[in-house]
Design a protein around this nucleic acid. Structure first.
Lengths: 126, 126
DNA sequence: CTGAATCCTGACCGATACTG
DNA sequence: CAGTATCGGTCAGGATTCAG
């Protein structure tokens, strides 16, 4: 199905509010990183905490609820002591990986050019 | 070149901080919308303000500086009275459109499923 | 181990008024 | 027209502590 850039920002009357909300949700500070990390395989809370560098425990807990609610991540609680909770991507979550990689690939590929552009811009501004 | 999801969140030692910063920059509240809007063609500040629904003049000004600094958007000032300023995508900015559309396409395609998942999740929580 | 609750700081961002 | 400047409210999000 053909997409136009306009799809990204349709106004509210066109139902665009919902559409806009989804990239908003996915592109927030941590969600994409968490989903990408879970692409390595199912893992428990602490592993995730170690792998997603820089996130606080609080934000990991809070952020995880979004993709869980959206059906991207599946949460399994084991009735053990101490408790064990594992997170894994659902098929829906896995389907997000290719477009996410496309964006990451773009960023990596053009990183040097963007850096150069910033330097030049800042130099012009003094 | 082969990409892994890990590319998204490489740690600082691996140079990942810069990589992470770029999607952060692109996925902020307005940048993606502005770039997508400019994909329709060069336009002036006021036109952009009208098309990007809901943005304040202040935020449009502030947000525009980021893609401009990154070399995604080119700004042309005409020495006229009243002043005229036009914004357009650079080739680098245009190259962002396909991966951005990939993500938007994913969001649109799976929107119903995500909505259903949210409803179910919220019902379970009461 | 997992995660909820509380506190607190700074950043985001809208409204408004002003300028070249 | 295209910004800049200032004020102020809201809220993201870190640090810490408590709980099951």
């Amino acid at each position: 199905m053909q997409r136009h850039a306009t799809d990204l920002y349709q106004n509210e009357a066109g139902g665009g509010r919902a559409i806009r909300a989804i990239p908003d949700r996915i592109c927030d500070k941590w969600t994409m990183l968490i989903v990408a990390t879970l692409d390595e395989g199912r893992m428990r809370f602490t592993d995730l905490h170690k792998r997603v560098t820089g996130i606080s425990q609080r934000m990991l807990t809070l952020t995880l609820r979004n993709p869980e609610r959206d059906g991207l991540v599946f949460r399994t609680v084991y009735a053990e002591v101490p408790p064990r909770v594992e997170y894994a991507l659902t098929p829906l979550g896995e389907s997000l990986i290719p477009p996410a990689l496309a964006l990451a690939g773009w960023a990596i590929e053009h990183s040097p050019r963007i850096g150069a552009s910033r330097t030049a811009f800042d130099a012009g501004r003094q």
